[in-house]
């Protein structure tokens, strides 16, 4: 992007502040719905950083995929599993948080030291700027063709896997007796399998034996 340097620095500072504060809000806020919306703000800020880095195509992909798909998916998941529950008190939770905070701060200092002590090969070659989309297309259909096709296969596998994992077991007919059943009844009477093993004891027997 060709902006004046002061404007560019100002944009960078604003976007970095949005990203960092938003990320802290995602992690720290008690209400998870606020976290999800702040996560969308973080994704938008990261897309702005991509624009500052001469990558308009990836910025558009970031907005489409992350803000448009992943964030909406997370919001749907929150709506599906939203239940008021009081979390059990864990002993030593504060100590655990402080210890992991110390570890993460140490990791941050280590990464900063790596970033500031390494001699990067700057200045590199001239950025292609607005031609980046053309170059990405050339890469995807020449030397990155195999990963590109593998990515499409991966997306198909993930889609089928997500459908298989997330759908309810609804049958138009009972598996054992073969009688047609009301689907609404099956969805309502589905009992959680792992929460209470004795819940099925009073129910119908799973297999009817005919004399």
């Amino acid at each position: 992007m060709t902006l004046a340097s002061t404007i560019q620095q100002l944009c960078f500072l604003v976007l970095a502040a949005v990203v960092v504060v938003g990320a802290l809000g995602v992690v720290l806020l008690p209400n998870i719905v606020y976290s999800a919306f702040l996560l969308g703000g973080v994704f938008l800020g990261v897309a702005g950083l991509y624009l500052l880095l001469n990558a308009s195509f990836v910025a558009a992909a970031q907005i489409l995929v992350y803000v448009g798909a992943v964030n909406v998916l997370i919001l749907f998941a929150i709506m599906l599993v939203n239940k008021k529950e009081t979390l059990a008190v864990i002993p030593g939770l504060l100590l655990r948080r402080l210890l992991s905070g110390g570890v993460c701060a140490g990791l941050f200092v280590l990464l900063l030291r790596v970033a500031f002590t390494t001699h990067w090969a700057l200045p590199g070659p001239l950025p292609v700027g607005e031609e980046a989309t053309i170059r990405i297309g050339e890469h995807l259909f020449s030397d990155y063709l195999l990963p590109f096709e593998l990515a499409s296969v991966l997306l198909l596998m993930a889609m089928i896997g997500a459908i298989v994992l997330a759908r309810r077991d609804v049958y138009s007919s009972d598996v054992i007796t073969g009688e047609p059943v009301d689907q609404g009844l099956i969805e309502k009477t589905r009992t959680p399998l792992l929460i209470d093993p004795s819940a099925n004891a009073g129910g119908q027997p799973l297999l009817e034996t005919t004399p």
Binding site: Q62, Y66, F76, L154, A158
Partner: peptide, 12 residues
């Protein structure tokens, strides 16, 4: 980004 989208779908 592609792998992250697949991961989010399967994870959720």
């Amino acid at each position: 980004i592609t792998v992250a989208a697949a991961e989010a779908a399967v994870g959720l």
